[in-house]
Nucleic acid binder design. Structure first.
Lengths: 204, 204, 204, 204
DNA sequence: TATGAATGAGTCTTCATTCAT
DNA sequence: TATGAATGAAGACTCATTCAT
C-alpha cells in the first residue's frame, strides 16, 4: 500500500517540522534540521511539499482544522446558552493545555506574515468556522438569552479572554494550568453576554 | 555634543528599521535596506546595535513601553471601576486603530521566540505594567465594586476581548474600525466584572 | 560510481586550495579563489569541508603523512646505524628540495595554532611517526652503535640540523641547494651519535 | 616627560598584542582585542604603529634583537671551542625556557608570510647576528679545533638540535624542561664539530 | 596627541532548492 | 519515488583604518 507509506512519511516530516519550528521558529529552522529529525531525504521532503513554507502552512492549516473541529464538537448539542459558552471556553483551554506545542505554534503563526501570504485556502476555513460557531449561538441570540451584538464581538467576548489567558501561559508568564480558569472565565463570559431578561443563574 | 549626534544616529537607524520591519517583516528585511533608508553605514549600524535582531528587539521594547505608558495614562485618575475599565479598553482599541502597523509588529513580536530569548529586560517591563495596572484596579476590587478573581484573570477579561478584536482587524478579517467596539466591549467587560452588589448601571 | 566522482571533486578542491595557500598563504586566500581555481561551487566546497580552515588542515595532515611515509621508506632496511642516519637526513633534505612550497607550507602550519587546536587526529600521526622512526634506531642503540640518550633527543640531533638548514633555505636566507648539505650533516650527526666503541668510520 | 609616557604606552600595546597573538594568532587577533587589553584607544594605537602588521613586526624584531643579544652575550669571551658551543646551546635553551611565550611567537613568525614581506630591516639584523656569531667561532675553526665546514652549517649543527628540542617543547609534545637537554646536546654538538686532531674530551 | 564613532569593502558562510542517478 | 551531492544567490557580519572633535 504505497499510499499509507507516503502518508506516514508525510506525518513524520510534519512532526519533525513542528518540533523544529517550536524550538527556534520557522525562520531559523533549516530544512537540514527537518531532514535529520524526520530521517527523510531532502528530495523526499521536496516531493511531499514544495517548499519549507508549505510545510509551515500545512502544519498551520491542519492544526487549525483540528482546533476548529474540536471546538465545534464541544459546542454541539448544547441546550442552553450558558452551557454552550462554557463548552467553547473550556474546549479552548483544554486544547491549549493538552497540546501546548501545537497551540503555541498556531498562536505564533496566526499573526505571522507567512500565513497572511498564502492564506487564501486558510481564510475559507476560518470563515467557515466562524459561520458554524455563530450558527450554534444564533438560536440563543434570537431567543434573547444572549444579548444582541455585532456578530464579530461574540468571538471576541467568548474566546478573547480564554485566548489571552492561554497566551500568557504559553509564554510562561503565568504558571497556573489554563483549565483552572474555565469556571471563572465561563462565568464572566456568561455575565457579559446573557440577555437582560435572564436570571442571575442563567436559564438552566 | 557627541552624545546627541550618536543618539540621533541611533534614532535614524531605529526609524528606518521600523519602516522596513513594518513593510515586509523582520525576517525579510535585510540590513542593506535599513542601511540605505537610514543612510548610515553598515559599520555604524553594527556599532550601535550588535545585530539585526537587536534592532528588532529594541524597537519592540520601545513600542511596548509606549503602549504601556499610554494605557496607564488612560487609566489614571479614574473615579469609578466602570470608567476605569472603559478607559483601558478604549485605549487599547485607540492605539491599535491609530498605529496599526506598529501594533501588528508588537503583536507579532510578542509571541515570537526572538523576544522569549532576549527577554530578561523586557519581562520586567511587562511585570511592571501588570503591577501598575492592577494597582489601578485594586481599590475597586477591595471596595467590592469589582468581583474578586485570581489576579491574572482581570487582564484576560478586560484586555483579552479588545485584543482579540484588534488582532482580527489587523489581520484584515474584519473591516470595522476597532474603536467602534469600545462601547459594547467596555459594557461587556463591566458586566463580567462588576461586583454583585453593584447596580446595573454601575456606581457612577 | 558516485563515490569516485565525489572523491575527485574533493581532490580538485584540495589541489586548488594547496596552490592558493602556497602562493599567498592560508590567511590571504579567499574561498572565492579556491572556488574559481577548482571550478567547484561555493556550496560544493562547503559540502565537502566545513570551513576554509578545515581544508588547510586536511592539506596539512596529508602533506605530513606523505612526509612521514617518505622518511620511513628511506629509513627502511638499513644495515648500519650510519647509513640509517644518513638516509633519514638525506630524505629530509631531498623532500624539501623537491617540494619547497609544500615544505614551506608544512613548516608554517606546523607551528601555527590552527593545527594545535584541531590537532587530536594529527597528534596521533605524529606520535606514530616518532614511534616508527625510533623503532628503526632501537636495534643500533641496543647494540651500542648509537649512544644512549633520552629518546626525544635522537630526533633533535638527526632531524634538527637538517630542518634548520631547510628553513634557512626556504626563507631564502641561503642559496645553496639543501641536498648539498647531506654529506656533512650526515657525517656530523653520525659523529654526535655514534657509540664510543665504534671506529671513526662507523661500522660499515 | 612626554617621551617616557609614550614609551610606556607603546610597551603596553606591545605586551597586549603579544598575549593576543599567542592566544589566537596574528591573523585572528583583532585590533579591538589589543585595544581592550592595552586599554589604549584605537587612535592611540594607530598613532604609535601604522597598522596591525607593524605591531606584529615590531614584536618580532624586538624579540629577535633580544634573542640575538642574549646569545651573543653568552658566547662572548669563551676560551675554548667547547665552552663556546655549550654556551650558545645553553643560551638558546634557557631563553626558550624563561620566555616560552615570546619564543613561541618568534618561532611561529620566523616562517610566516608576514615577516617575509616586511623583512628588509629584519634581514640585516639576522645577517649581523650570523656574522657576529660566526666571528666568535672563527678563531677555533682557524685553529683546527672545529672542523672546516660551509659556514652556514655551523648554525644548523649548533642551534638546529636545540631549536628542534625547543619547538617540540613549545608545542607541548615533550614535557621535559629544555634546559635539561643542555648537557647532552652540547656534548653531541661538540662531537659533531670538533677538529679531528682534538682529544676526546675537547681542549679544555 | 588622544579619542572612539564612522566607514564600507571584503569574507565567510548559509540554505532553499534543483537535478542527475 | 527516493536520494543526497551540487548549486550559487543572498546575507549577516567583521575589522582594519580613517577622521572629526
Amino acid at each position: 500500500m504505497r499510499r499509507a507509506a507516503t502518508e506516514q512519511r508525510r506525518r513524520e516530516i510534519l512532526d519533525a517540522a513542528l518540533k523544529c519550528f517550536l524550538t527556534h521558529g520557522v525562520r531559523d529552522t533549516t530544512l537540514e534540521e527537518i531532514r535529520e529529525l524526520s530521517s527523510a531525504s531532502t528530495g523526499s521532503i521536496y516531493h511531499q511539499f514544495g517548499s519549507k513554507d508549505e510545510i509551515a502552512f500545512a502544519l498551520f492549516v491542519e492544526g487549525m482544522r483540528d482546533y476548529h473541529d474540536r471546538v465545534l464538537a464541544a459546542a454541539a448539542g448544547k441546550r442552553t446558552a450558558r452551557t454552550l459558552i462554557r463548552a467553547i471556553i473550556a474546549a479552548h483551554l483544554r486544547i491549549t493545555a493538552e497540546e501546548p506545542e501545537l497551540s503555541l505554534y498556531l498562536t505564533q503563526m496566526g499573526t505571522a506574515d507567512e500565513v497572511g501570504e498564502i492564506a487564501a485556502e486558510y481564510r475559507e476555513a476560518g470563515d467557515s468556522f466562524a459561520r458554524d460557531l455563530y450558527a450554534a449561538l444564533k438560536p440563543f441570540i434570537d431567543a434573547g438569552e444572549i444579548v444582541a451584538l455585532p456578530q464579530e464581538l461574540y468571538f471576541s467576548l467568548i474566546i478573547g479572554p480564554a485566548a489571552h489567558r492561554c497566551r500568557s501561559w504559553l509564554r510562561g508568564r503565568s504558571a497556573a494550568d489554563p483549565r483552572t480558569a474555565a469556571e471563572p472565565l465561563a462565568e464572566a463570559a456568561w455575565r457579559s453576554l446573557r440577555g437582560l431578561g435572564t436570571t442571575d443563574r442563567g436559564s438552566d
